[in-house]
Design a protein around this nucleic acid. Structure first.
Lengths: 143, 143
DNA sequence: TGTTAATAGTTGAAAATGTAACTAACAAGG
DNA sequence: CCTTGTTAGTTACATTTTCAACTATTAACA
């Protein structure tokens, strides 16, 4: 790409950010409005809902969220009794996390909204665009 | 989308965030490493580079960045003598922003890296994916 | 063993962000 | 002119995030 050709509006990191921010803020209204959750808290909650009995580190790696953010999100989720933490007897550095019934109820509720929201997004796109977009984003997430 | 089908890893806001974060952090190394700029500062600088003599409000609208963020980014850019601000004589609420030669030099330098980076990204994707991705992201940014 | 390194996670201070309230300048209608 | 409303931008304060240093526990191996 030559200098003269450059257009900020087509620059990938910029476009990705715009789209990610727009959809994040839009979906945020749901989990923030219904449960007062922050973005990181919601993300951690969803990981706990999908993968049962995991450790904080698993969330960090899978979601690429820094451990301090995860640590603080877990504190809040534990304060609200959405999550239990129990240290592994064999290796006491490890802490196994699990959703409480309350936490799971919140997760299940938000799951429905997430499904609806995904439909909202994909309805904006053609089926072909949706498919290509997903595969492209998965590739780019690994950079 | 039914509940059982739901997979966090395919949830659009999640995927968008992962890809946006990955590419942002990656490209950030360049402008942060070379000039110690923050993400918002870099974005504002690029808008000033692309569109000469604009107002803070134009940046807010085009980039969808909140006015307080733009205001603070401009303070820093002005402190570094990358930007000049002159109030409009006809309407003194308006402040025209322009890059200084220094600011433009930084912009031009980063422009090259941005071009290279965009090539890096698009080389990961097929031409078809690149094209579809761009148009899809532009649609989604308008949500 | 005993020393050093690695792992999981927390904490505190500094930096950045978000929200709302604010100033300053102009516009519009009486 | 004089109130009321609007626009552009800043500031203050609370909340979040980041960065680096920290604790506690286990692993590696001389």
């Amino acid at each position: 790409m030559k200098k003269d050709d450059f257009d900020l509006r087509h620059f990938m990191p910029y476009l990705l950010n715009q789209a990610a921010e727009a959809s994040s803020l839009d979906f945020q209204q749901i989990y923030k409005g219904r449960y007062g959750l922050l973005r990181t808290e919601w993300r951690v909650l969803f990981h706990l809902g999908m993968y049962h009995r995991i450790m904080a580190k698993d969330i960090c790696e899978r979601a690429k969220i820094h451990k301090t953010k995860v640590s603080r999100a877990l504190q809040k989720l534990a304060d609200r009794r959405y999550v239990t933490r129990q240290t592994d007897a064999a290796d006491r550095r490890h802490e196994w996390l699990e959703l409480t019934p309350q936490g799971r109820a919140v997760y299940e509720d938000l799951l429905n909204y997430a499904g609806q929201y995904d439909e909202k997004i994909t309805s904006i796109l053609t089926p072909d665009e949706t498919r290509v977009l997903r595969s492209a984003l998965i590739k780019l997430a690994k950079i």
